[in-house]
Computed example of a mutant assay.
Amino acid sequence: MTQTVFCRKYQEELEALPFPPLPGEKGREIQANVSKRAWEEWQALQTRLINEKHLNMLDPTDRAYLMEQLERFLNNEETDQAEGYVPPER
């Protein structure tokens, strides 16, 4: 049976993450409050931001920027987008 979580992004019960996606308290908080669907969508946005903005994950400033974008994404606030990105047609 699949575990569910009340997703803070979508405000509904959705499939839960199987394990914390980040180390420490932040990872446990995300696992308890963010759905697998929302996390997968965040990972896609995060990848585009890292690639298009040439972020360096060894740079604390770039990591802080991504964490800020993560919070904005999960709170349904406007996030930065990769310039020139065109979502695939459905």
Rank of each mutant, 00 (worst) to 15 (best):
residue 29 E to A: 15
residue 11 Q to V: 10
residue 55 L to Q: 05
residue 18 P to S: 04
residue 90 R to A: 14
residue 40 E to F: 04
residue 50 I to K: 09
residue 60 P to D: 10
residue 72 R to T: 05
residue 78 E to A: 14
residue 83 E to L: 08
residue 22 L to P: 09
residue 64 A to K: 15
residue 53 K to P: 01
residue 50 I to D: 05
residue 7 C to S: 15
residue 2 T to C: 06
residue 72 R to M: 12
residue 28 R to L: 12
residue 66 L to H: 15
residue 72 R to K: 15
residue 43 Q to C: 14
residue 85 Y to K: 07
residue 81 Q to H: 14
residue 48 R to N: 14
residue 34 V to F: 08
residue 2 T to R: 11
residue 46 Q to L: 02
residue 52 E to K: 02
residue 52 E to Y: 00
residue 84 G to W: 01
residue 11 Q to W: 13
residue 55 L to E: 08
residue 28 R to F: 06
residue 12 E to V: 11
residue 65 Y to D: 08
residue 15 E to D: 09
residue 82 A to N: 02
residue 27 G to I: 02
residue 54 H to G: 03
residue 33 N to C: 07
residue 8 R to I: 04
residue 16 A to F: 02
residue 22 L to I: 03
residue 39 W to V: 02
residue 70 L to V: 01
residue 90 R to L: 09
residue 77 E to V: 07
residue 65 Y to A: 10
residue 16 A to D: 00
residue 40 E to T: 01
residue 60 P to R: 05
residue 90 R to P: 08
residue 84 G to V: 02
residue 85 Y to Q: 09
residue 61 T to F: 05
residue 17 L to K: 05
residue 89 E to C: 00
residue 51 N to V: 07
residue 13 E to P: 07
residue 18 P to A: 07
residue 6 F to K: 06
residue 66 L to Q: 13
residue 24 G to S: 10
residue 83 E to A: 13
residue 44 A to E: 13
residue 74 L to F: 12
residue 34 V to M: 07
residue 54 H to Y: 04
residue 5 V to P: 03
residue 73 F to C: 12
residue 45 L to V: 06
residue 57 M to G: 06
residue 90 R to V: 11
residue 62 D to E: 06
residue 7 C to W: 06
residue 15 E to I: 04
residue 34 V to Q: 05
residue 43 Q to V: 13
residue 18 P to E: 01
residue 40 E to L: 05
residue 51 N to H: 10
residue 42 W to I: 06
residue 44 A to S: 14
residue 43 Q to F: 07
residue 11 Q to D: 12
residue 71 E to F: 03
residue 42 W to R: 03
residue 9 K to P: 03
residue 34 V to C: 11
residue 28 R to S: 11
residue 87 P to G: 08
residue 72 R to N: 11
residue 46 Q to M: 11
residue 45 L to M: 09
residue 64 A to D: 15
residue 65 Y to K: 10
residue 77 E to G: 06
residue 30 I to H: 00
residue 53 K to V: 00
residue 75 N to I: 00
residue 7 C to H: 06
residue 74 L to K: 09
residue 26 K to Q: 15
residue 9 K to I: 05
residue 68 E to Q: 13
residue 64 A to S: 15
residue 89 E to P: 00
residue 41 E to R: 06
residue 21 P to A: 12
residue 73 F to S: 05
residue 9 K to H: 03
residue 23 P to D: 12
residue 77 E to S: 07
residue 20 P to K: 06
residue 37 R to W: 05
residue 69 Q to C: 07
residue 29 E to K: 14
residue 20 P to V: 08
residue 85 Y to I: 04
residue 64 A to Q: 15
residue 52 E to I: 00
residue 48 R to A: 12
residue 79 T to R: 04
residue 5 V to T: 03
residue 12 E to W: 00
residue 57 M to L: 15
residue 15 E to P: 09
residue 31 Q to L: 09
residue 75 N to T: 05
residue 21 P to M: 07
residue 77 E to I: 02
residue 61 T to E: 10
residue 1 M to D: 06
residue 80 D to E: 12
residue 53 K to L: 14
